[in-house]
């Protein structure tokens, strides 16, 4: 009848502005993936062979072998000790670093140097740092401890610097206006502002250290990672699975603890 002729097709509007641009972006992604797969020279035969080997390895992993539980326990304890000690050392290291990296506190050259140090330290993976400490101090947990302490100091230092920069000055002035001394001012105005958050950040870092402590052993920096690495190189797959399960349990427990404490603090 006289009904208007409505279109009978509709396509969603383009996600990236125009349809032309959308096609370009999608083609770009596809081309990149194709290129990267060819560039990596993926050997399909080896991948397929790997799938059957995966079954074989899996079969050898099950059931996990907890017979050498003493070795396992030593490794786990060492990881935990490294994480704990490194967190404490990191807290100590973070104070000078944090003060130096606070824009409103440190002189310009010191501030820039500290910030540069933080950026460098954060960018390099813990394992790279670990390998240097292993070269300096030999194999073992000391290298691991120093690695984690270094990484923690940088992380906590950065957080501390940001806290100092964000401290609200109102309460500081109010307490100082009552005639309080420097120490009293800090205790009554700055500490309450940053304490809960700082404890939360430290606990978070402890959790991160537990995670990292399980891996830096790969380059010989102690902890359960070293045990795991050794078990893999000896094809002791049932022991490997036992270690993996313990790592999962430890890390999950660490995360749960960290979440719990931080929920309490809020």
């Amino acid at each position: 009848m006289t009904a208007a002729a409505y279109p009978n097709t509709w396509r969603p509007p383009a996600f990236f502005g125009s349809r032309r641009r959308q096609r370009l972006v999608i083609t770009g992604f596809v081309l990149y993936f194709v290129w990267s797969i060819f560039d990596l020279n993926v050997d399909v035969e080896r991948v397929l062979a790997g799938l059957s080997r995966a079954l074989d390895i899996f079969a050898r992993m099950v059931p996990p072998d907890f017979a050498r539980w003493e070795l396992l326990l030593t490794g786990m304890a060492e990881s935990l000790q490294m994480a704990l000690a490194a967190t404490l050392a990191g807290v100590l290291l973070s104070v000078p670093l944090g003060l130096a990296a606070a824009r409103n506190l440190a002189p310009r050259p010191l501030y820039l140097a500290a910030r540069g140090f933080i950026v460098l330290g954060r960018t390099l993976h813990e394992i790279i740092i670990a390998i240097f400490f292993v070269k300096l101090f030999g194999f073992g947990p000391v290298a691991g401890l120093l690695t984690l302490a270094f990484a923690s100091g940088i992380f906590l230092g950065k957080m501390l610097a940001e806290d100092i920069e964000n401290t609200r000055l109102g309460p500081v002035e109010a307490v100082r206006a009552t005639g309080a001394g420097f120490g009293q001012t800090v205790v009554y105005s700055i500490v309450p502002q940053v304490l809960a958050r700082t404890v939360g950040v430290i606990i978070y870092r402890l959790d991160a250290n537990v995670r990292h402590s399980t891996v830096i052993g790969i380059v010989g920096a102690g902890g359960i990672g070293q045990t795991l690495s050794a078990s893999f190189s000896r094809y002791d797959y049932d022991f490997s699975l036992a270690i993996l399960l313990c790592i999962i349990a430890l890390v999950a427990l660490g995360e749960w603890f960290s979440d719990w404490v931080r929920r309490k603090l809020r």
Binding site: V47, G50, R53, V215, G225, L244, I247, I248
Partner: peptide, 21 residues
């Protein structure tokens, strides 16, 4: 989430052999 990327790497190197896969 609990197993680090590098540890996953250790496992998959055992399966697929060394290399980017």
């Amino acid at each position: 989430r609990s197993v680090n990327t590098v540890i996953w790497g250790l496992l998959f190197v055992a399966i697929f052999g060394p290399g980017p896969v």
